[in-house]
Each structure stands twice: as C-alpha cells, then as structure tokens.
C-alpha cells in the first residue's frame, strides 16, 4: 500500500515512502526529510506558516498532497540561503530584527521571496497585499514590511 514519491528538495534528489499519498507535503518535509523550517500552523491554507516553493511558486505545503509533489522542485527555508550565503531576505530579516517568536517567519520569508522574484521593486502597499494571507500573532508586521523593502533594494 505504500507509495514512494521522488522530488527535488533544496537542490537534491529526495524520496519519501508513505502509507497515504494524500498526506500533505508538510509532514514529509518535517518528519521524513527533517526539514523543520516550514511549520504547521493551521493545515487549512489560512496562515502561511507551512509555505514552501514548488517549482518557484509559494505553496501552502499543509494542503498539498505529497503525491502531487512527485517530480517537482521543492525549496524550503533551509534551501533558500544559509548563514554563509544568506538570501537577501534572510539578511534583511536579521537587519530589521523582523522576528519575535519566528513561527511565522518561514512563511513570511518564503512568501516574500516568491513575490520579489516576480515583483522586484514593490511599493510598501504591494508588500502588505502580498502578505495579506500570512498571519503573525506577535506583531512583527512593520518590521517584516521593512525587511522586504530592504531586500528589494538589494
């Protein structure tokens, strides 16, 4: 009954074997591949905590069946950049101290990265609209917007 799904994750080939192909990608990333950057927040595509890139698009991994990831290219926060080679957004989030608990930070950064790839020179209002479906309970919003603007200036 098990199924094996092969995908590219953070630039490397990865396979996961699952009992249920309908299992959301989020659990494969967190539990099978040990990538805990994406978080479970709602499982309902309402909060953004689980966001990853699938073929370059920001996707809510809590609602995407792992079977649908077969053959796709997945990027998680861990693959976006590292301390040695940070993505401009990661550097900007540090510079603006745009994190409190940081549970939302994965979604903020991954959503913004996909957004900036399409809209490299946004206005602040565009940034706020782009993040309208990303929840933060700690109130980091102004710092997140400042960080995205900083990253967009390069």
């Amino acid at each position: 009954m098990t199924e094996t799904v092969a995908m590219m994750v953070n630039g490397r080939a990865a396979t996961v074997t699952v009992d249920d192909p309908q299992m959301p990608l989020l659990y494969a990333l967190r539990n099978d591949l040990g990538l805990t950057g994406p978080h479970y927040g709602c499982g309902l595509s309402q909060c953004g905590a689980c966001t990853v890139h699938v073929d370059g698009n920001a996707v809510r991994s809590c609602q995407m069946p792992v079977a649908d990831a077969a053959g796709k290219t997945i990027l998680t926060l861990e693959g976006l950049g590292t301390a040695e080679r940070p993505h401009p957004l990661q550097a900007a989030f540090i510079a603006e101290q745009a994190v409190q608990c940081g549970y939302c930070a994965n979604g903020m950064i991954m959503e913004s990265a996909a957004f900036l790839a399409k809209t490299p020179r946004p206005t602040e209002a565009q940034v706020r609209d782009a993040l309208v479906n990303n929840i933060c309970r700690c109130g980091t919003h102004p710092r997140v917007v400042a960080a995205v603007m900083r990253a967009s200036r390069g």
């Binding site: 967190r30 805990t36 950057g37 926060l77 861990e78 976006l80 989030f93 940081g102």
Partner: peptide, 19 residues
C-alpha cells in the same frame, strides 16, 4: 543588541519544541 535567536530562525535552524 541584535537578538541571538533570530539568525537561526530565519535560516530554518532554530529548534522549536515542535521540532
């Protein structure tokens, strides 16, 4: 002073209890 936890949080390395 910059917060000590933020780099790990933005690189996906921070270990929450969830992890």
């Amino acid at each position: 002073v910059p917060r000590v936890d933020i780099p790990d949080k933005v690189f996906g390395r921070f270990q929450y209890v969830h992890d």
